[in-house]
Design a protein around this nucleic acid. Structure first.
Lengths: 336, 336
DNA sequence: GATAAAAATGAAAATGCTTACATTTTCTTA
DNA sequence: TAAGAAAATGTAAGCATTTTCATTTTTATC
């Protein structure tokens, strides 16, 4: 069943059928109706390939994602896919893992599929660092590239991000103002946003004239799935004699691990120890009491990103970046 | 940059270039190398539309998913996408929500994109129930349809599922054997697998000559994100005087809610109350002690599903269904 | 009712690939 | 080394659309 069959049955040319299909205005209403009726009656569906060949666009956007099973990234994918679909675009998903060569390969795969754009989700390890990111710059030569959670200056690349530096700084200051004397910063990556958050923590201390001590900045190197590992990690620090009355983390799973550590050691949260997470994910509700967590506006970022993308594709003009402000959501794991 | 340009530069015909591109064996190694070198050097990328037109396949599989941000479904998507990519297929993701009309629409969208197959993830609400599922049967007329976690008898539809009935029955029997007297079953849906699990629970009691009591089968109707709601739900039952020394649930988030209820009421887990979750997701590690949970072999199911799909697409013959056995993973929330 | 302008339509080229079939080249074997 | 078989390559016909440009039809105006 092709456009030819329809044109024959309707007694018009294929060009007219095509015009009807594409909503061109230059079709007599009576003709349009006749064609539409026949299309309906035959259950005809245009062939997306041929259409793509002609239009050189398939109304499809590639989503490049390190790990779709990650809580945070999954949410991002969900928001993005939904917004894209509402704008008439399809989403091709490609999960890459965290290695650069693999990401590169997947990007090329998407480009060869002739997607209209590529959205990189969880791209917080893309820094303004020449060599490793050449592939992003190259990709931007063919299609607009949209980064979620990254800061990258390059033509045809748009970023939407959260001011992680300020959010962490503010939260740390809240903790200091609430009287905590020994705050442990627990993080898990030296990626772009990881370093930003760390810097925010450090700056808060410096502003309050508190000396920075290495042992109060601990990096957990296990996976995001290894909550037991986090618990043990904190436990070891504790058993080694590190004293802390507050823990602020770069991701919620670290905070949950810390909560479990407290529970196992019968340390009362929030009276003896206060804990702050990051991302405001469902994990923040997985302990009793719930965990205070910094919300980094994921949904807003995703909405903004898709909105910008649609604008870019239709008007061919792209803003540089949009920065959101994070917000500390206060729950039972803190006292302030 | 097309296949013509490459053929010209390489001094061969476009057919030969095409053969090289498609890994046909009938190409002289020297010729192949020459062509590949030029392709590499020019950075040529085949046009997927034209290719699709010729092959009438874009090596693309649609993934229909109610909610990609759901922990469990996200993991499924991750496994499926990965396995598909390794087999040379791309994944088009479509999130539908839980409403039938929306699922229908998305399925049609995918079909009009000429995907080679559609995988329905989290399709556990697809029952052998005529009217609502007509759209699945219709879809199966165009492409093979693969269901994850559903039991559906229809030509050109394949199912992979876990024996939720038996898994729940076995776990309940473990609890009974361990001496629990009042086991509360906490579930959250009357979908296909939801009912199976419930039946498994009931059967275990019946087998042990324990009368079924309505108040010990409670359905939580909130969302999977509402862990606080679960905690309050259990709390209310408790305050109303319901006595229980064991809780078995249909999903991990219910178990976490129950754990939080216990913590808030200073009920010792596992000594005063034992709790069992379902899915063996990361949530099982989010409390101290960790939660015993039934693993329903998600990864195995996904691998099997993709393997079957690839077989179906290449040999055009499809088995009916594969059933896995769940397994209780014992952790600190239980004593046995 | 003739003429010009506008609207509707159609013919055909273009899109970039695959592949059946025809042709040429290379390899075997007597 | 000639003949036949096998391997490699090329030609050209699809594939199902979109779109340009030419043609026809309709409408408006005097």
């Amino acid at each position: 069943m092709t456009i030819y069959d329809i044109s024959k049955k309707a007694g018009v040319s294929i060009a007219t059928v095509s015009r009807v299909l594409n909503g061109s205005s230059n079709v007599k209403p009576r003709t349009r109706k006749k064609v539409l009726d026949i299309i309906e009656q035959c259950g005809y569906k245009p062939n997306a390939f041929a259409r793509g060949l002609g239009l050189n666009s398939m109304k499809t956007v590639g989503i490049l994602c390190a790990d779709a099973s990650d809580l945070y990234l999954a949410k991002a994918i969900y928001y993005i896919e939904q917004n894209l679909r509402e704008s008439g675009y399809n989403s091709v998903l490609c999960c890459t893992g965290y290695e650069i060569p693999s990401r590169k390969k997947c990007l090329n795969l998407l480009l060869s599929q002739h997607v209209d754009s590529v959205i990189m989700v969880g791209s917080n390890f893309i820094m303004n660092n020449a060599e490793d990111n050449k592939y992003v710059v190259e990709g931007a030569a063919s299609v607009p590239i949209m980064l979620l959670n990254a800061d990258f200056d390059c033509p045809n690349v748009y970023c939407t991000l959260c001011d992680d530096y300020k959010a962490t700084q503010d939260a740390t200051e809240c903790m200091l103002d609430a009287g905590m004397k020994n705050i442990l910063y627990l993080y898990n990556s030296t990626t772009y946003s990881g370093l930003k958050k760390l810097a925010g923590f450090q700056n808060a201390l410096v502003t309050h004239d508190i000396p920075l001590k290495k042992e109060y900045q601990q990096c957990f190197s296990g996976s995001r799935e290894d909550i037991d590992g986090v618990r043990d990690f904190v436990d070891t620090l504790y058993k080694e004699g590190l004293k802390f009355d507050g823990i602020i983390t770069s991701e919620d799973f670290l905070a949950i691990g810390a909560m479990n550590f407290a529970k196992a050691n019968k340390i009362d949260v929030p009276n003896e120890l206060q804990i702050v997470g990051y991302n405001n994910s469902i994990l923040a509700h997985c302990s009793e009491p719930n965990i205070s967590s910094i919300d980094n506006r994921l949904e807003d970022m995703c909405i903004q990103l898709v909105k910008t993308l649609i604008g870019t594709l239709s008007q061919n003009e792209m803003p540089q970046k949009t920065i959101f402000s994070g917000e500390l959501i206060k729950r039972g794991s803190t006292n302030f």
